[in-house]
C-alpha cells in the first residue's frame, strides 16, 4: 500500500498538471484535481485513510525540506527584502490581525461553538505553527490542520481574483497578500507569478506565523471575553 499510494498520488498530480497546462482555469489548479482524484481513489477502492497515509506521509514529509528550501530565495533577495522591510512588516502584521479577529468574529456570527472557533482562529498560518497555536488557545490541533488546508484551497482559488479586482500591480502586494492569507500554498502560487512575488510571499508567511503565535492567545482571549 505504501508504494501504491505514493505512485497513485504522484500519477494523479502529473495528470492534473497536464490538464492545467491545457486549460488555465483556477478551479483546475493541480491541487484541486489531484485532491479530487485522490479522494475518489480512497473512497472507490475502500482504502482507509490510515493505510493511504502509510505512503502518503512520505509526501507530507517532503514539506520539511521544502520549508528549509525557502532559505534560498530569501538569501538571494535579502537586499530587496531589507529595502521593503517597513511595507512588509506593516502589511503582514495588519493582515494577521485581520485574519485572527475576522475568523473569531465570523465564527461567533455563525454561532459556531468555542472549541471550533479556537480551532479556526490560527487557520491562516502554516500547519505546524497553526497546530501549536490551536493547542495554546484551547482548540483541537487536528481540526486546525484541516482548516489550514481548507484555507489554502480557498486562498488559491480567490487569490488571483482579489489581485485582479483590487487592481494590485506591485510584486510586493501580490506576494504579501498570498503569503499572509494562505501560508505555504499561497506562497507556492506566488512563485507562479514570479521569483520576486514568491520571495515576498515566503517572508510574509514566516513573519505571519511568528506574529500570530505571539498575538493569537491574547487577541482570541480578548475577543471571546467581549463577545
Amino acid at each position: 500500500m505504501l508504494w501504491i499510494s505514493i505512485c497513485a498520488t504522484v500519477l494523479f498530480f502529473l495528470i492534473a498538471r497536464m490538464i492545467y497546462r491545457r486549460f488555465q482555469i483556477a478551479i483546475l489548479s493541480p491541487i484541486f484535481t489531484t485532491l479530487l482524484m485522490t479522494i475518489l481513489f480512497v473512497l472507490l477502492f475502500h482504502v482507509s485513510y490510515t493505510s493511504y497515509m502509510s505512503g502518503g506521509r512520505y509526501l507530507t514529509y517532503l514539506l520539511q525540506p521544502a520549508t528549509v528550501a525557502f532559505a534560498i530565495p530569501l538569501y538571494k533577495h535579502f537586499q530587496l527584502l531589507k529595502r521593503h522591510s517597513v511595507e512588509i512588516l506593516v502589511s503582514v502584521i495588519g493582515g494577521s490581525m485581520v485574519a485572527i479577529s475576522s475568523t473569531v468574529l465570523l465564527a461567533h456570527l455563525f454561532r459556531l461553538n468555542t472549541s471550533l472557533t479556537d480551532s479556526l482562529a490560527p487557520r491562516s498560518i502554516t500547519t505546524p505553527f497553526a497546530m501549536d497555536v490551536s493547542n495554546m488557545i484551547g482548540g483541537t490541533p487536528v481540526l486546525t490542520a484541516v482548516f489550514v488546508i481548507l484555507t489554502a484551497l480557498v486562498g488559491l482559488l480567490v487569490g488571483p481574483i482579489v489581485i485582479r479586482h483590487l487592481r494590485i500591480t506591485s510584486s510586493l502586494a501580490k506576494g504579501t497578500l498570498l503569503g499572509t492569507s494562505a501560508h505555504a500554498a499561497g506562497t507556492s502560487r506566488a512563485f507562479e507569478f514570479g521569483n520576486i512575488e514568491g520571495t515576498f510571499a515566503s517572508i510574509s508567511m514566516i513573519l505571519a506565523a511568528g506574529f500570530t503565535m505571539l498575538i493569537a492567545p491574547l487577541l482570541v482571549h480578548l475577543l471571546q471575553v467581549h463577545l
Binding site: G155, G159, I168
Partner: peptide
C-alpha cells in the same frame, strides 16, 4: 458555515494585506 467563515475571512485578509502593501509601496 466553516467554509463560509474561512472564505469571507480569507477575502478580508487578502484585501487588507494587499491594499495596505500596495498603498505603502506606492507612497514609500
Amino acid at each position: 458555515r466553516l467554509l463560509l467563515v474561512i472564505a469571507v475571512s480569507t477575502l478580508l485578509v487578502m484585501g487588507a494585506t494587499g491594499w495596505v502593501a500596495d498603498r505603502l509601496h506606492h507612497t514609500l
